[in-house]
């Protein structure tokens, strides 16, 4: 994909489809140009056999199309830059603490690295589509941190007004844009 943020949007949809109630999207950038993307959900998880196969492009449990592309794309993107990729998962059948953690590390200075792109749009689209999930977005950089906690915002909006309302989404867009522009030292 042209932007890492599009890949992240796609990977987050996997957590939504796994019926997660809490989804944390963390981006961690260091001074040397390494970026770690980690998504943690408490969805239904996968068994060991599935985990082993999901980063292989010819594996998917979906029936509409044979090949899953999301995780292989992410893996390829990370490894092409000399970074790494990993999945940890615990299936719901195994009880307490089930869910999935996908981690991908990128060397953003590598010639094959795609830019992060528009994370604000990615977060807004996720909130618009799934306003009842407790999203936590944290983007930590050497110049400071951008953060959005859906549960916190929802507690202000109350029962009647959804986080997915256009006016709310527009406010969130501005809220994130402001945090990003105040990062520049």
């Amino acid at each position: 994909m042209r932007e890492l943020s599009l890949n992240i949007l796609d990977i987050a949809q996997n957590s939504v489809r796994a019926e997660a109630k809490n989804i944390e999207i963390a981006l961690l950038e260091d001074e040397n140009g390494w970026l770690t993307f980690r998504i943690t959900d408490n969805g239904k998880g996968m068994d060991a056999e599935t985990v082993r196969r999901v980063s292989d492009p010819f594996y998917t449990t979906r029936t509409t199309r044979r090949v899953g592309l999301g995780l292989p794309f992410l893996r390829m993107g990370a490894e092409m830059t000399g970074g790494s990729f990993s999945i940890r998962s615990k299936p719901r059948e195994e009880g307490e603490g089930h869910g999935t953690v996908v981690t991908a590390v990128f060397n953003m200075k590598h010639i094959d690295a795609v830019p992060l792109g528009d994370m604000v749009s990615t977060v807004c689209v996720l909130l618009q589509g799934q306003p009842d999930i407790d999203w936590l977005f944290i983007h930590s950089t050497p110049a400071g941190e951008v953060r959005l906690d859906a549960a916190e915002l929802r507690s202000i909006l109350g029962e009647e007004v959804s986080l997915g309302e256009t006016e709310v989404i527009n406010w969130i867009r501005d809220y994130l844009d402001e945090q990003y522009s105040s990062l520049n030292p």
Partner: peptide, 20 residues
């Protein structure tokens, strides 16, 4: 600066509309 107070205002404004 975006404040959480603004979000509370949006809530008040939207409440009636959403009900309709």
């Amino acid at each position: 600066m975006k404040t959480l107070a603004e979000l509370a205002e949006i809530r008040e404004k939207m409440k009636g509309k959403v009900a309709m």
